[in-house]
Design a protein around this nucleic acid. Structure first.
Lengths: 172, 172
DNA sequence: GGAATATGGTTTAAAATTCAACTGTTTTCA
DNA sequence: TGAAAACAGTTGAATTTTAAACCATATTCC
């Protein structure tokens, strides 16, 4: 989303005890931010043009399509696509309006709702998936060797887990 | 920003000639999206709490601080932090309102404007930078070996360049 | 059992982002 | 020279996202 986030002593900054990034780290960090921002933007735009839904909405449809019964509880879905519950709620409202998803109250826990993929939603997903994966391949995997893909995977798995607060109460 | 973007044949999709992702690619792709989304969110939130500006705004301040005369033309700045010119314009308006940046008309090209870092902007930047880099280190570099940092850099540099349209007219 | 608290989810308003239209300047080129 | 096209940037309305308050049901624990 951005680049050039400061990680080097900006001019005369002189806080004690800060381990500033060295030249290589600096360069890697900026590359990382730029690359991600561009990849996401391009794929989002492509997907939007191809199918009328953005990357996040597409992710929601995919998650639903893979779930048993093609349905998920809102909270689980929110965690799975990594958005706030509020945002998910809005997003589902939009997808519902488009006819791709519908809500159904949950019997077991009457506070809850299911988000359910409709036939039409599945259609859209199927129609868009092929083009999307082709784009992902062009934009990412075709540029890397098999070995680099492996390395990237190893690194990303290390970077994935959130904050150290691995067991505490779950805000969001 | 999202995870679970479909890149595997979603159920019964059967377009001819699409090279779907294999299991490893699939897993790497999802890791990548999740990791990036989390890292960015956490750093943004941290920075916001620490200094009242988000990651993108911080990036703008940094870019300015590194530019000769601590000033940049809007377009160059927009490209450098990777946002649309419209978004940058709004963003600068906000930063201006906050007193961190000011605009000045450009003499050489009278269509243009300079965005200029103010003393106060520089202050904020200095005050926030140390904490931020510490956070970046914790969240990213401290989790990787030196070798992995190198690998990550190599990969990201390959993924950075946008679309193949490397010379054509420049939309945005 | 029942009060306190936590959880699941929505909603409303405010803030940020996008999109398209628009102004004014510069460049191109016939 | 001058008309057409390109460029730099802003603006305002529409859409999306975020933040906080809120409702209802579940769970905890005395």
């Amino acid at each position: 989303m951005t680049a050039g986030v400061s990680t080097m002593a900006p001019m005369t900054a002189r806080e004690e005890g800060v381990r500033w990034l060295d030249a290589e780290e600096q360069s890697v960090w900026r590359s990382l931010l730029r690359a991600q921002s561009r990849i996401e933007e391009e794929l989002d735009r492509d997907l939007q043009a191809r199918s009328g839904v953005g990357l996040v909405e597409f992710g929601i449809l995919v998650a639903l399509s893979e779930a048993p019964g093609m349905r998920m509880r809102m909270r689980v879905l929110a965690d799975s696509v990594i958005v706030s519950k509020s945002r998910l709620s809005h997003q589902i409202t939009r997808l519902e309006r488009a006819g791709y998803v519908r809500r159904e109250p949950c019997e077991e826990d009457r506070r809850g709702f299911w988000a359910i993929l409709t036939d039409q939603g599945l259609e859209v997903l199927r129609a868009a998936a092929g083009g999307h994966v082709t784009r992902v391949r062009e934009r990412v995997f075709d540029r890397l060797t098999r070995e680099q893909v492996r390395q990237l995977g190893a690194v990303m798995r290390l970077l994935e887990p959130g904050d150290g607060a691995g067991g505490g109460p779950n805000p969001r």
